[in-house]
Nucleic acid binder design. Structure first.
Lengths: 361, 361
DNA sequence: GCGTAGTATGAATCGGCCA
DNA sequence: TTGGCCGATTCATACTACG
């Protein structure tokens, strides 16, 4: 595995050389300018002739589709079963890419809109200002258990879920790489903030990120800063050299600035019976719901028995029965009274987890 | 030409019965092919009323593609040479529709994002909130001389060009048609504001607008109000009848009042993570309260980690935890030191808002 | 009539683990 | 592979009920 390296060569060929099922995330910013035939090559590296009649236009789409299919298949092979793929594009190419992804079995999780804070105006006044680009986020298959750092994203967003429309400025100023003459080095350099949002959303520290159209190396620079590994593939040596220098200058963030906060989903399971065993709840104690309308008694084995009936079962089952609901989270439904105030029993579980955490150290 | 009428029947067949080259604009809201799984419940156990109608069920992508190809061809035939087409969809279908449009020779002018002001949340926390839908605007061919009311749109938008991302609320409240039992009549009724923006952008008064998936008749109602003619095609008689009554109740606007209203502006909510992404705060930096008694470290994802513990969360939650309070405004509680002086992080937010300026919408 | 609290709802591809 | 059970999860708006 060529970790933290830039591979010089054709994307499809180089991806074929990687071990199958080895990559956690693919970020792809493929070429999309269908008008410039000279920029577009077939999978076999042959040049597509510039064309202008109907049949040739069809030929152009077909060629682009073949190219898209080939690199998507190679990326799919390189991905771990639970890995995900981001592709960015504009209306010129994104519809073809998205349809091909569906055809190949990728499972779309979101389409995401990068709203440009400072887009280029439409000078001719013949269309709406083209003020966004589209990202497609997809899992390798419909049943994949993909990474999504939901809690961390929400906590960093005023405690509200992050939406599918993201606002970022273009990559300009100091961040924009320049060549020797002071001109922009790469025509489509993406802002680091956009890549940071992508990597923080769908990877963990240490994960491997593959970028088959590496360009000026934004993916690598952000990966290094966020302590992810990267594999970059770039055909043009000038871009690869500039990217290498750029990435080497990046200082990784301190590790403790990156460890994901413990999420409720990943927290170690604590059974209600353990609370009883440890004495945080006494057998025979009475639990109520938040408003005191339903009551249940704690039994020594960690089950509950519903007051006024002979129903016995788990905190969840009995909570559901009490309400006549199909399901219920007993941890938040049932409350215990301490010093005249009602707390959800989840508070007791948190207390026990804290104790256990300290003991484990 | 059946002007200002609702044709009862199949879209493709009825479009075939229209004169070729007779329509100025097609607005199409085809089935999205949602492919929903089982039931989805909100955290409060209430059931989400999903779109599970027969008309949205397709066996396979191939079936959906064949359907899409057929109606697009019929619409293309009905369009005048200089007419344009709007299609609305979600990530489930829009990529297939867009690719097919390109294959059939349509020339895409813009893709447009309808940003929903009040989208339904992602209840399970497994994806980004699906907060937008996509419209594709295309001319019949690349050399068409299409209608685009650039000056009027700009004048109605505080004299700046209208962007490709539009912000509108969902169709709810009084505007939403109800059946006899007070339930929503149609599962996917679109807001009139969205259709008004479409018609004001790409048609002149008196133009003919064809909607082959008429549903509750939003296109017809807005067309009548804006003094455009419409042709609606709808398969279900109940929808057609309700649409007829709805449209008959519309009073056309005075002829001299047909300029687009200015779009509502929204104070941008700036998340703390954006300050980190933009580099106004560095991951690893230390924040304190005003008196320096509590300390916390900034993490790369925009969360804080409280010094002396493993508590991690939003600036607000961690501020509350530090004080043992129930709630806390992190923006005013946490301070950053610059040149020997402490400022609330709200000062940084104000700085960023000033930079972002107009773009936030 | 006004303010507040509570309820309803919107195009949704919305688990994981173990037996 | 399947079934059962644990237990995690929501934002903006509009409307109704009530004092």
């Amino acid at each position: 595995m060529p970790l933290d390296q830039i591979l010089l060569g054709d994307s499809i060929q180089m991806m074929a050389g990687l071990p199958a099922g080895s990559v956690d995330l693919v970020f792809a910013d493929p070429p999309y300018n269908l008008q410039l035939g000279g920029e577009l090559k077939r999978p076999d590296e042959s040049l597509v002739d510039a064309v202008d009649d109907d049949w040739d236009r069809f030929d152009s789409f077909a060629t682009y589709d073949a190219f898209t299919r080939a690199w998507l298949l190679a990326a799919r092979r390189a991905l771990k079963p639970n890995g995900t793929l981001f592709v960015i594009g504009s209306y010129h190419n994104i519809f073809r890419v998205g349809a091909m992804m569906q055809d190949l079995g990728f499972w779309i999780l979101n389409d995401i809109v990068w709203r440009k804070a400072n887009p280029m105006p439409n000078f001719r006044g013949r269309r709406f200002t083209n003020a966004h680009e589209t990202l497609i986020w997809a899992a390798r298959s419909a049943d994949a258990k993909y990474t999504f750092n939901y809690e961390a994203l929400k906590a960093g967003n005023e405690d509200v879920q992050v939406r599918s429309d993201w606002l970022f400025p273009l990559c300009t100023g100091q961040e924009r790489l320049k060549d020797g003459a002071g001109k922009k080095l790469h025509p489509t350099q993406k802002p680091e903030a956009l890549l940071a949002r992508v990597l923080l959303s769908a990877t963990k520290p240490g994960d491997v990120v593959l970028d088959p159209f590496f360009g000026s190396g934004t993916t690598g620079a952000v990966a290094r800063r966020l302590r992810r590994s990267f594999i970059g593939i770039e055909r043009e040596e000038a871009y690869a050299q500039a990217a290498r220098a750029r990435i080497d200058a990046v200082e990784p963030l301190p590790e403790d600035a990156l460890i994901a906060p413990p999420s409720a989903r990943e927290a170690p399971r604590v059974a209600f019976s353990v609370l009883v065993e440890r004495g945080l709840v006494t057998p025979g104690a009475e639990l109520t719901d938040a408003k005191g309308r339903f009551r249940a008694v704690v039994r020594a084995d960690g089950t509950l028995s519903l007051a006024g009936g002979q129903n016995v079962g788990s905190i969840h089952r009995v909570g559901a029965l009490a309400q006549g609901a199909e399901a219920c989270n007993g941890w938040t439904f049932w409350h215990v009274e301490e010093e005249g105030r009602r707390h959800p029993i989840d508070v007791l579980r948190a207390r026990l987890r804290a104790e256990m955490g300290i003991a484990a150290e």
